[in-house]
Amino acid sequence: MARGERGTMAECVECGADVSLPDSPEVGEIVDCTTCGAELEITETDPVTVEIAPELEEDWGE
């Protein structure tokens, strides 16, 4: 399936389930694993790879 095409999947590094990716995934974008609830960060897009996203920190926000 072409990069960024709807329906692209990645494997959750926490539980191994398939995770749906958004349209045109971007490095740095966060996706949620609907199976285990892990937040995953997209670290490569061609092909897509994901890692566990950093935990929320106190000074995050706007």
């Binding site: 045109s24 971007e26 740095g28 974008e29 960060e41 997209i42 996203a53 950093p54």
Partner: peptide
């Protein structure tokens, strides 16, 4: 300059 691409950044990039 980013550390996380939220929907806001994605809209801007697009």
């Amino acid at each position: 300059l980013y550390s996380r691409i939220r929907r806001d950044e994605k809209l801007l990039l697009s």
